[in-house]
Design a binder for these strands. Structure first.
Lengths: 144, 144
DNA sequence: ACTGATTATAATAATTATTACTATTATTAT
DNA sequence: ATAATAATAGTAATAATTATTATAATCAGT
């Protein structure tokens, strides 16, 4: 197996991830780390983000729109993506609930389930406030 | 508003989606539809898959590895991706459970939650049985 | 059925997101 | 300090998806 060697770039990326709550894309991480390492390359950012995710020191979030996002908070938790502003928020749920869902899923699957991720869709408070009089389409049953 | 016009290509795509359980990628759909429409273009497949998803007549599934997948089964349900063969399976769960999770999430989010998707990770029965020497399945696999 | 308006298509080009390659540099064990 | 090895920057390449455009299919009104 490849032996892991320390690098200041990776340390900076991990440090940045652990202090931001914005669930940044690789490109966003790149733009921030460049302040400290002006010559860092985007490939290095990608490699280290994936490395951290593989080691369980970060989480990779895939959404139907846009590129993958990364989260330095590794304790199991869910995410909400706002359908208006596309920002991603943490959902504060009992961790016990997440484990029980894994168990429940295991009972209904022919194989072995190890983990899961959940992505919720909705409108964040800020976006709700921005357009208070707009018809809320997502709550109607029929679309026309 | 854009008026939707019938197209035989879109009808064939929807028909194919509703009869396959393989959660195909756009490329897989393309390869199948080409049997009936040898001149169909991949762009047409993408446009119609996204159109169907936007209309709620299909579901788009994003996974950390590989391209998006599509599912003609629109009733709320979860998915399991096998970490070995990368195939995606439906998870048979009580639909009531899915609704209750939305409610629970709403109580813990500052905003309004409308829906969610969940992707489980694990090993399918087939891969569990096959032990060490497993065929490598690439992300562009053709499964139906 | 014919005509015109509009949408969809095929073919291709372009874009976006990500990974691969390689010569050089940084880290670490001896 | 030296040597071995992993990581990096810079760049090229790939994969997935979207945009463009001229032509064809659909459909509403005669």
């Amino acid at each position: 197996m490849a032996n892991l060697k320390y690098s200041r770039q990776r340390a900076a990326i991990k440090e940045y991830l652990s202090h931001t709550y914005g669930h940044p894309t690789a490109d966003t991480v790149y733009l921030h780390i460049r302040k400290e390492f002006p010559n860092i390359s985007l490939g290095t950012v990608y490699r280290n983000l994936n490395l951290l995710a593989d080691m369980g020191e970060a989480i990779k979030i895939s959404t139907p729109e846009g590129g993958d996002r990364f989260d330095g908070r590794t304790a199991p938790h869910y995410h909400v993506v706002c359908s208006r502003c596309s920002r991603i928020f943490d959902l504060e749920l009992d961790e016990q609930h997440i484990h029980s869902v894994n168990k429940l899923a295991n009972c209904h699957f022919d194989g072995t389930i190890t983990s899961h991720s959940a992505l919720f869709y909705g409108i964040c408070r800020e976006c709700e406030s921005d357009t208070p009089h707009k018809t809320i389409v997502y709550k109607t049953q029929n679309n026309d």
